[in-house]
Design a protein around this nucleic acid. Sequence first.
DNA 1: ACCATAAACATAACAAGACATATAACTTGC
DNA 2: GCAAGTTATATGTCTTGTTATGTTTATGGT
Lengths: 324, 324
Amino acid sequence: MSGDILKERPALFLASRLKRLAERMQGDVAALGGAVGLEIQPAQYSLLATLEAYGPQTIGELSQAMGLSQPAITRNAAKLAQMGLVAIDRLHKDQRHKTVSLTARGEADMACSKALVWPQVEAAVRDLLAGMETQFLAQIDAIETALAQKPLHQRFAPAGLRLLPFSDERAALFGAINREWIETMYRLEPADLDVLDHPRARIIEKGGEIWFVEAQGLGVVGTCALLKTGEGQYELGKMGVLEAARGRKAGEFLLREMIARVRALGARRLYLLSNSKSAAAVHLYEKLGFRHDEGIMREFGARYERCNVAMLFPLSATGAKAAA
Amino acid sequence: MSGDILKERPALFLASRLKRLAERMQGDVAALGGAVGLEIQPAQYSLLATLEAYGPQTIGELSQAMGLSQPAITRNAAKLAQMGLVAIDRLHKDQRHKTVSLTARGEADMACSKALVWPQVEAAVRDLLAGMETQFLAQIDAIETALAQKPLHQRFAPAGLRLLPFSDERAALFGAINREWIETMYRLEPADLDVLDHPRARIIEKGGEIWFVEAQGLGVVGTCALLKTGEGQYELGKMGVLEAARGRKAGEFLLREMIARVRALGARRLYLLSNSKSAAAVHLYEKLGFRHDEGIMREFGARYERCNVAMLFPLSATGAKAAA
DNA sequence: ACCATAAACATAACAAGACATATAACTTGC
DNA sequence: GCAAGTTATATGTCTTGTTATGTTTATGGT
């Protein structure tokens, strides 16, 4: 009996778990309402309750107040209108607005729900939450507030890092950043020099790409190249981050973006050649999914003197979408 | 700007809030995956992750492991198979089972997700949860466990109370329970006596109903009658709970059930007549939604000497379903 | 005064879950 | 050894949410 994967990666699968939990609870509430003879669905209570508490509202106001999308409200209101629980009229001076209000029957059903359903649900939920009720609800509250202030997608990218495309003004930076790390750890091979001095001719014009990372306040701090070495095949190389800018995950950010980029290009193979002396880099490659690969070593290993590590990213012929 | 109703009744609307939260988070995760060129939907990660962690599984095993319904798994697996990420085969000796396993491409996409998407999501969620991460996740865990042990619908009904229908053996109880409270607070009117001694003839055979509450270990502790006083019209009366059994919410339970019952009967009017001396009872009526009503007082108030309170339940012509 | 833009709502397509029920493969009891 | 029940999966329909896009009504600039 395998465990629950959702529990093993709790932060990753939090959303799925919350949904699963909510689904179960709503199902039970619906059953309770049904037993009482009310046809109101659990999700409709919030709309009716909003109308009861704050009086008639337009579709847009409801969407705002309930935190749901406008189409969700439109449909739900239409359904409730069909059931005879709300009325939808054009009362506003501005004829675009539609005002939703409780009908007498809607108020009656709400009274009934408040008597028969709500207290039961609240008691059951309190029982379920046992001691942690206050705390848990406060936390949900805090999460909602935090999410409203800064949505999740703004929390994805490491703050203050930005990807920049190649341009001739930045060509010199490409050489400079790479010279820094190559010279401190190895020595420049002739092949290196050629590429570093003529990035446009040697990389871009051969179908490859060069990208830069900019750190807020510091300017460009890193770069990386994708060399096209065949149809649907790219070599990741000449990746470097300035010594002065280490520790802000610029390399990880850049590498991630490169993988995404290669996928967007619809490539079939992405590999890289490196040296075990660059332990930090190799570790990063491993962390992001690159795997040591003998085949790559045999096929491309001879290209650089310093090469003793060859890695392949598991792409498979997938996700080939139009390049952005 | 009206507030958020979901926050004002937190226990009641917990499910809706969780769903709203989950929906927002999943939306953002989907956008992240899309940016990387992965077509995998957030909800599908859990299936793929389960396969990766525990190896090939049958549909049923997945349903079990992930805590979702079997149809949900069947459909999701079919979709993933169509995308080429999983294979579905009959490998089992028992030809009914279907085994779902990751294809090479599925493994590749998982590797990519693990590199590009998962760490970002985890970091973002941790950022969102800020300090409360451990605690919050532990609470979600506790709630899931509690819900698995005792589902919400088992937490609805007050423990140990049960509704019983009328039968001739219980006819005497009907009289006895009502005599207790009437005699202590008022005096028995002739109309009372007649009804209490002949419940079948005076109530049941006239289209009314009589119900009892049984408390675990104590036997029948309360009763209530619905007198049919017209087409689709019922009077709630002769409701009593034994002195010895007060404090266990038997009256509330009974009254709730009566309202539900009347709705099931498709009634248009439900009213009751009482006296302000029975303050506890009147308070209960108010709590469950009955409203003081002058019309009812004028129409029926003369029927009992002791009547100085008349109440109406807001039924409206609604929820008229077939009687159970 | 009129046309472009914006705002409020409607509609369509889709996602991901639920339950109910159908179908096919196995098991069991007589 | 076969009918009857059980079990594993498939399918239909509903709920409740989402985007994306279409319509209609206001508004504002030339």
